[in-house]
Design a protein around this nucleic acid. Structure first.
Length: 520
RNA sequence: GGCCCACUAGCUCAAUUGGCAGAGCAGCUGACUCUUAAUCAGUUGGUUGUAGGUUCAAGUCCUACGUGGGUCACCA
């Protein structure tokens, strides 16, 4: 427990004094007839009528002038100015307000609405009560004057502090609240789009005895009673496709994936993923669906398919540009992939171009690294890159007539991978040999090697309809649609390193700090 | 994991070649019955991230560590 500051000790004393004066600082009941927005609307509807209103919210500013005080009260709908006068409220109540009420307190105020000399609609208060006393002051906003121009600094703009105390961030920064309202709209829009097409929303296990469906390291956990190690899922794919075997033709899931990897502006260890699978469709159909889904969502959230993002305008209007992977990598890197059919040959060509390819990487991995290096950053407008190397896509179906290529595409926007999809492999015998292939390629001790999911093969042997599958990070989509540069701005409580806490020994001395829960 | 940068009052930031740690806001006391960056007068608040080192003297220089940010690597 951190020691209380002087201000906090003061405010706790005010809690005591309020109770002493017979006023409960944390009452159970609230009297509220209007939100602040409704109060403003009530006045607009009847400017001469002095409409009555009782509002509740957080005190955000106080301006005292002796026997009169102006203050602003904020609720989820906005702000309302309140006006307290000694001759109306009584000198004792005004005194109580001055002495015992602080910025950040939740209060209720009741009275009538009028317009001040400067035209601001204001509640003329006759009765006032504390709803919840704030002990710790919110990090205060600062405003300053530079060369005669008013500059408003949000005092609470330190990213670390904002993420660690998101509640304070939300309380102080309305834009942050707006981002998360928009995020909720993204999810709603995605759902309503898919529901409208007859998709069934399902939920599949997060705790999985065998993980799979993506190349990523999992988090490991343990079931005590069953003495069983379990993994937090890295994708939904293998479970959702089992459902196609079961006769559900269109399924989707929105939920959390967990990947035990590094953190960056576009990676969080847990993130929200959308996956859907459509029977009797291939990756071309899924491209069209993707364009419609994303443009629909942009329209629903932003009211337009042309969205400003980090100084650029992203145009999600279908159709999106479609480019062949081999061709665009060749053009961008100056390496003609067709002339280097082996991993060794391609690695040699890369070295000639000044790269140091990972030793032992497959040809597919090399191509992917070229894609990431040369192509991905330049794909600002929504673009589908299609036809991927077979060896990095063990769950995708071979392209007819081209055994080294699979029907897979990724969608890129603003230099970032947004989604990944393919014509799903539904041939159980081919799937089994692809798993075997992966096992040989990776070797038994490689952490990226997925364990073989026998039950998945078992399901497929019953017969799986041809289908197209799709995965998209909803955090990243939200970034694009809310103009946020990092994934942390669209996740309420992003992953942070654990704080180092000084530990107290039995004698009460502070011992050497110990690092807890660090990665690696 | 590598490299770079940052860490000073509750918040945002100053502090010359190493030479008495400061300001604004917030807080506290007082004045003020249409203010909204309220205004005016006064005032409290510091182990300069942590631990060592160099020095007559360290916020400043050196080393290690911590935390955060950036970047590279990694991430089918």
């Amino acid at each position: 427990m951190r020691p209380l500051s002087e201000i906090e000790r003061n405010r706790i004393e005010k809690v005591r004094r309020l109770r002493e004066a017979g006023s409960e600082p944390y009452p159970a009941r609230v009297r509220r007839t209007h939100t602040t927005a409704q109060a403003l609307a009530a006045f607009a509807a009847s400017p001469e009528g002095k409409p009555e209103a009782a509002v509740a919210g957080r005190l955000r500013s106080i301006r005292t002038m002796g026997k009169a005080t102006f203050a602003h009260l904020e609720d989820a709908s906005g702000r309302l100015q309140i006006y307290l006068r000694a001759d109306e409220l009584g000198p004792e109540m005004l005194r109580t307000f001055a002495d015992l009420y602080d910025l950040g307190d939740f209060i209720q105020a009741e009275g009538y609405l009028f317009a001040t000399r400067t035209g601001e609609v204001t509640l003329h208060v006759r009765a006032l009560a504390m709803l919840a006393k704030s002990i710790t002051p919110l990090p205060a906003a600062k405003e300053d004057e530079v060369d005669g121009k008013r500059v408003v600094y949000s005092a609470f703009d330190n990213p670390e502090a904002r993420y660690r105390e998101r509640y304070a961030d939300l309380a102080l920064n309305p834009d942050v609240r707006d981002v998360f309202r928009a995020r909720a709209k993204v999810v709603t829009a995605v759902r309503s789009f898919l529901d409208g097409l007859g998709f069934v929303e399902v939920e599949t296990p997060i705790l999985q005895p065998i993980y799979g469906g993506a190349a990523a390291r999992p988090f490991v956990t343990h079931h005590n009673q069953l003495h069983q190690d379990l993994y937090l899922r890295i994708s939904f794919e293998l479970y959702l496709k089992r459902l196609l075997v079961g006769g559900l033709e269109r399924v989707y899931e929105i939920g959390r994936d967990f990947r035990n990897e590094g953190v960056s502006f576009k990676h969080n260890p847990e993130f929200t993923q959308l996956e859907f699978y459509v029977a009797y469709a291939d990756y071309r159909d899924v491209m069209t669906l993707t364009e419609e889904l994303v443009s629909h969502t942009a329209q629903a959230v932003r009211g337009t398919m042309r969205v400003a993002y980090q100084g650029q305008t992203l145009d999600f209007t279908p159709p999106w540009r479609r480019v062949d992977l081999n061709q665009i990598v060749g053009e961008a890197s100056g390496i003609d992939l067709r002339q280097h059919p082996t991993a060794e040959g391609l690695a040699g060509a890369m070295r000639e171009h000044g790269h140091s390819p990972t030793p032992g990487a497959t040809r597919g991995k090399l191509i992917e690294s070229l894609l990431a290096h040369y192509v991905e950053p330049s794909l600002v407008q929504p673009t589908f890159v299609y036809d991927y190397p077979r060896d990095i896509s063990p769950l995708a179906k071979i392209k007819p007539g081209d055994p080294q290529t699979v029907e897979r595409f990724e969608g890129f926007v603003a230099g970032m991978e947004l989604c990944n999809a393919f014509t799903e492999l539904n041939d159980p015998l081919d799937q089994e040999s692809r798993f075997d292939e992966m096992a040989r390629m990776y070797g038994a001790d490689d952490e990226d090697r997925n364990p073989l999911d026998e039950d998945y093969l078992n399901a497929m042997r019953y017969g799986m309809p041809p289908n197209g599958g799709f995965g998209m990070g909803l955090d990243r989509l939200t970034m694009l649609l809310t103009d946020q540069a990092t994934i942390r701005e669209v996740i309420l409580f992003p992953h942070l390193r654990s704080r180092e806490e000084p530990r107290r020994s039995a004698s009460g001395d502070v011992t050497q700090p110990e690092t807890l829960g660090r990665d690696e």
